[in-house]
């Protein structure tokens, strides 16, 4: 087959697989539920200033006459000690969570994937050993612990939190892509590419990388939830979004101090965290099922 024919064949195969994949994905009610939930969460987070009842409550706002109100029709999730509407703050809190997840993954996936490709391709060379041993060092301690330590040593805020988590996250992608690349290294299409003198960049990024998309996508979706959980955990300890900004973890920590009387100020932000993580997990599981069937 000529190059164009090959390309057309590959493309059409991919398109067929996509619609087949979507069919498979849509047969799983849980994944669809996750997708709809996530869509709603993103929608309300983006439109937060326009749809929340008290957008001014998202920042430093005080109205002591309305402080510590239990949930009611005027304040769906109640109010905190400063009289701010918790429902409004939760919706704004989603913005920080989603921003964190997107920034961390876009900072950590590219370097992780590139290093994994290189290490997997140059097996047995010094560069593989160097990359993979450095990866081992980063994976020697749970990511939350090291992210905590680093954020604490820098000053605690959202930016440093993002940097610390990103620094902890790339090794997971490096190891994942290393494994995939190592298994593809001796496939014929890689040898053929080498034989006709394709450049290393072409082999790594045009031949091997497209075959890594499925595992990357699956892991990325699951990690969105995981990063949000780590971020909320850091904020809960006090090393993330700083007040008066409405971080979900920060709000739970704040409410936890006032248990059991003002239970709403801890419970609703906590449920909000669970919902967004659950949505990403359900979509991720759906993607995994979809890809795993396709591969076999």
């Amino acid at each position: 087959m000529s190059k164009t024919e090959l390309l057309v064949a590959a493309l059409s195969r991919r398109r067929v697989n996509l619609s087949k994949g979507w069919y498979k994905f849509s047969r799983n009610p849980l994944s669809i539920f996750g997708l709809i939930t996530l869509f709603l969460v993103i929608l309300v987070a983006v439109l937060a200033p326009y749809i929340t009842p008290y957008p001014e409550h998202a920042g430093a706002f005080t109205n002591l006459r309305e402080s510590s109100q239990p949930p009611s029709l005027t304040h769906l999730f109640g109010t905190d000690t400063l009289g701010r509407d918790i429902f409004t703050r939760v919706i704004f809190g989603y913005r920080f969570s989603l921003l964190l997840a997107v920034v961390v993954l876009s900072l950590s996936i590219p370097p992780g994937v590139i290093l994994g490709l290189i290490a997997g391709y140059y097996q047995g060379r010094w560069i593989e050993i160097a990359i993979m041993r450095i990866t081992d060092i980063f994976l020697a301690v749970p990511p939350l612990v090291l992210a905590l330590a680093i954020t604490a040593m820098l000053s605690p805020n959202l930016f440093n939190q993002m940097m610390a988590i990103s620094l902890m996250w790339w090794p997971w992608y490096c190891r994942l892509i290393y494994t995939v690349t190592a298994s593809l290294r001796h496939e014929y299409f890689v040898y053929e590419g080498e034989l006709i003198g394709a450049s290393k960049t072409h082999i790594l990024f045009k031949e091997i990388l497209p075959n890594c998309i499925a595992p990357i996508l699956t892991k990325m979706t699951l990690d969105m939830g995981f990063v949000i959980m780590v971020g909320a955990s850091l904020s809960f300890i006090g090393l993330g979004v700083q007040p008066p900004k409405p971080g979900l973890g920060t709000m739970v920590a704040d409410g936890a101090k006032r248990l059991p009387d003002e239970w709403w100020s801890a419970v609703f932000p906590a449920i909000a965290i669970v919902i967004v993580i659950l949505a990403f997990n359900l979509i991720g599981d759906g993607l995994r099922d979809m890809f795993s069937v396709e591969e076999h």
């Binding site: 939830g225 959980m229 909320a232 955990s233 809960f236 973890g249 739970v252 920590a253 936890a256 906590a270 965290i273 669970v274 993580i277 659950l278 997990n281």
Partner: peptide
């Protein structure tokens, strides 16, 4: 169970 943060 896996979606709930431990502090929650």
């Amino acid at each position: 169970g896996v979606a709930i943060p431990p502090f929650a």
